[in-house]
Amino acid sequence: MHTAAGSQARLPIRSDMDLVWVRQHVRQAAAQIGFGLVDQTKLVTAASELARNTLIYGGGGTMETEPLTDGGARGLRLTFADEGPGIADLEQALSDGFTSGEGLGLGLGGARRLVHEFAIDSAPGAGTMVRVTSWVGRPPRPREES
């Protein structure tokens, strides 16, 4: 897997105005790569959830977009990073209903269901990094039994 030629970008997440830029940028990048409308919407929504987490819990940070190719498959990877207080219990943070700020607490767990790949790295005091990837034309992964 390697980075495809194409728009690679890093956007700041400092205010709720930036959330709008993040959404628009992800929408454009996803459309350019060839995502269908539903998958674009899922990815933009996931980005919005994660960017808001970065803003509210992380005290601001950045999002990086990176178009990918893996053989014939095309995808988009989004990386959200902040240097905030970090998350002590990742398992709990990913479960629905958990929230330490505002919102319904669907941020992390919800975003995870909207993408194909989800990785999170965080520790108390060490900031949080969330990386999500989706691939064009791939069916959504079945939701884990709940």
Binding site: L37, V38, T41, K42, L106, G110
Partner: peptide, 14 residues
């Protein structure tokens, strides 16, 4: 509500 939005909200769990 648009179909894509409705599908996304349901996947989101909302």
């Amino acid at each position: 509500m648009r179909p894509a939005v409705a599908i996304t909200l349901v996947e989101l769990g909302l």
